[in-house]
Amino acid sequence: MAQSFLEVKNLRKEFGGLTATNDVSFSMGRNEIIGLIGPNGAGKTTLLRLIAGILKPTSGSISFKGKNITGSKAWDIVNMGVASTFQNMRPFRRLPIVANVMVSCLSPRSMRGGEWVKKVEAKAMDALEFAGISDVALEKASTLSQGDLKRLEVARAVATDPELLILDEPFGGLSPAETDLMAKSVARLHRGGRFGRLHSEGPAMIIIEHKLQQLMKIVDRIIVLNFGTILADGAPDVVVNDPKVIEAYLGDGGTSCS
């Protein structure tokens, strides 16, 4: 059997008495984009942080490209090719925006390329260009708007040349126009190619998002979490018409949103 790209087995995380993710298992392929949805407090962000290594699971295992990465250091996981963004953006506030991205460009994974890529500032600028905020590159990160902070998060994650990109609410707090733009950027990134010095390997993606309409357009598959367990897993149009999902997500009497 071929190694699956990302394999999550019986992943469980308990915060004191609260079980945030309860034996979650799924696997994904190299070229998939998975949408992860669920009501508030369903454990979506916890699941992503477990994969990214920011939290340690109570039990269960995660393997990435056949290697067990359960309990690895966050930076090792990033340097294997799993990049993630934060839902509540965490920029380095007192640094200029370009320096924020330069930190990612200085990671060993990002520096593994040739001399051309080692010009970190130029590469950081290309990442900002890709995210669409290169015009404010020299401003302090604390001056950015919410939407631009989201872009900064994406730029920072993309600058580590990920193979698996985990986006936590990339459209949260964006206007409809900005959302469209971001969705296009994400789709462009998934196709792969070069953006200046920035090399996209066409990463697989896991996207947490509440704006389902935009999400539907870009994902291949949707996983619905509720109370830490997987409620449904399948193609977008199948999942959103599943009565169980509608009940969990919208409560009784809700309608499909596709």
């Binding site: 990214a52 966050a74 934060f86 965490r90 380095f92 990612s104 200085l106």
Partner: peptide, 11 residues
């Protein structure tokens, strides 16, 4: 500024 974010950037 933010150690967790620095880790998430692969440092």
């Amino acid at each position: 500024e933010d150690e967790v974010a620095a880790r998430a950037a692969g440092i």
